[in-house]
Each structure stands twice: as structure tokens, then as C-alpha cells.
Design a protein around this nucleic acid. Structure first.
Lengths: 146, 146
DNA sequence: GCTTCTCCCATTGACGCCCATATGGTCCCA
DNA sequence: TGGGACCATATGGGCGTCAATGGGAGAAGC
């Protein structure tokens, strides 16, 4: 399978590391990704993670605008200033830095959430709430899967 | 990776020095930069830092316009009058001069913010606010990653 | 002569690389 | 069908290296 699906919660160890679920790692390695690009999501209190093409997509979007415009400036502040390349250790773990903790509220556990072409890091409770809200929103609009 | 990404906050020591994050130093040395060009940002209360090619880019842009125009005049005032060359010490630290403090409000800590082809020095609180505003602006415009 | 900056060295805490253990699952074979 | 070997994943920890920081002493400028 070539996309990120499902979610799972893993523990952060004493050194501040957490294992990326093997299903996600498989998708990454199949895509030949060695360093992952992580950025503070624009909408949710979550870190979005994917291959370098994620960043390139943003940069292309910025390049299309006037580089001195407000919009491009603000976007760079988020995409460059709020993004970073991380690499996994030999066991497929990543360091949960302050960069991640401060933005997500993560402290002892991380919920990995598949989002198709990328995945996200959530504080478990926050994810449960956001998912419940999303479900509620869908119900009210009377939408059905499929 | 060959661009400036992420942000990190370092302390200013008793002598008024602060360490440039090693990730940024790596980008600089990879580009063969020995002296960095610093100038007061046009938009934010931040100092922008990069290699000499940053200055050259501005000068090229000025040269492209009518040299006696208001725009070129103002730009020179900022780029030349508001810019200096600084060099890092052997440990990769830079002196936080009054030039930097007065314009940014920096006093005891510096937040380094990657901006792709350059990076910036911010007062930590000011950066947090600016980033929050940028995120808010994006939300209102209804844009989403991808 | 005193202040300010530069180069050098020391400390300490964090991170990267490596190997070890546990837990749960699957497969094979009797 | 039950037991056991085997395997993969998640997790724990040792240890060397490097980055961030602190401070000393010489060099340069006022």
C-alpha cells in the first residue's frame, strides 16, 4: 500500500524518541524517502510529516506569487520557519523535539495519523477530540461515506 | 539539506554573543560563506542574514529600476543604510550589537528562523506572534496544504 | 591604561549510532 | 488443534561525539 492510512499511538521513551509505525515507515521507504519534512500544520495543532516533495510543493506555490508579497512572506514564515527536516534513527524512531512538543502539546505519547500522502503527529487527546468534531460535522451535514 | 529551515532559540551570553544553530552554520559553510550580510527586514521586526549574494540580489533589483526613482531610493536606504557585514567567531557565534537589539527588541535570547535562502533573528515573543498571525491569515484565506 | 573584541580552551548536556530485550503474532509441524 | 520455533515491531539503554555555553587571556582600539 502506498499511502498513509489508519492511526496508532506510541510511547515516547526516556530519551524523547518515539517509533514511527512500521506501516508508515514502509510507505516512506517505498518512496525512497530518507529524511522527512515536518511542519507545523496550518489548521490543526499537529505536525504534518512527508517527503521532501511536500516542501517543494509549497515552494512552487510561493514562487508563483510575487516573492515580496505579504502572502508569500507569511507563507515562508510558516513553511520555512515552521518546518524542518528530521531523520529517523536506525530503528525507525524520531526525536520529539520542543519544536514538536510546543506546537502539539505532546508530552508522553504520540498519535500517528495517516492522511493519504502524508501523516501527522498528534497529542492523543487532541486527536480524539478533533476526530469527534469531524464526525459530528459530517453527521450534521447529512453526508455519508462513499 | 541546502536551505535554512526551522527555528530555534539560543541564549545570549555575558559577552553579548549567541551561537548560530549548527544546522544554519552547515548551510553557510556549504555555500562557502565566511562573512554574513545582515540587514533590517522590510516587513518584520527582524534581522535578515545571508551570504553576500543576498545584497547582490537587492542591488540587481535596484539596478533594474530607474536609479532615481522613489522605490530605488528607499530600497538603497534600507539595503545599504540598514545593512552590515558580520563575521562569526571560531565557535560559530555572532555578536548581538545594538544595531540588532534596537531594531528587533532582542535582549537575552534570540530566535533563529529559517527562511529558505536566508535566515532571520527575532525576539522570541515577537516571532511567536508573527507566526500565529500568519497562520491565522492563511486560515481565513481558506487555503490548505496541497 | 582601560575597554572592547578575538582566539582559545573547558564543561556539560544533548543527540546519533549501536546493541539488547520484550511482546505479540504467524507459521510450521506433530 | 495445540505447542513451539521463529520473526517483526516497539522499546530500553550504553557510550562516544558534537553542539551550546561559559570563561580566560592576549590583541587591538579609544
Amino acid at each position: 500500500m502506498n499511502r498513509f492510512l489508519s492511526h496508532a499511538t506510541n510511547r515516547i521513551d526516556a530519551k524523547g524518541r518515539v517509533s514511527v509505525p512500521s506501516a508508515f515507515r514502509a510507505v516512506l521507504s517505498e518512496a525512497g524517502v530518507r529524511e522527512v519534512y515536518c511542519f507545523q500544520d496550518f489548521v490543526f495543532p499537529a505536525i504534518s510529516v512527508g517527503g521532501p516533495e511536500l516542501l517543494e510543493r509549497f515552494e512552487k506555490q510561493m514562487a508563483a506569487e510575487d516573492p515580496f508579497s505579504d502572502a508569500a512572506n507569511q507563507m515562508s514564515l510558516l513553511v520555512h520557519g515552521g518546518g524542518v527536516f528530521l531523520k529517523l534513527d536506525s530503528e525507525g524512531r524520531l526525536m520529539v523535539t520542543d519544536f514538536i512538543r510546543d506546537f502539539t502539546g505532546i508530552s508522553t505519547e504520540v498519535t500517528f495519523v495517516g492522511r493519504g500522502d502524508h501523516f501527522q503527529l498528534w497529542e492523543p487527546q487532541a486527536f480524539a477530540r478533533a476526530q469527534a468534531e469531524a464526525r459530528e460535522g459530517r453527521k450534521q451535514r447529512g453526508l455519508r461515506p462513499g
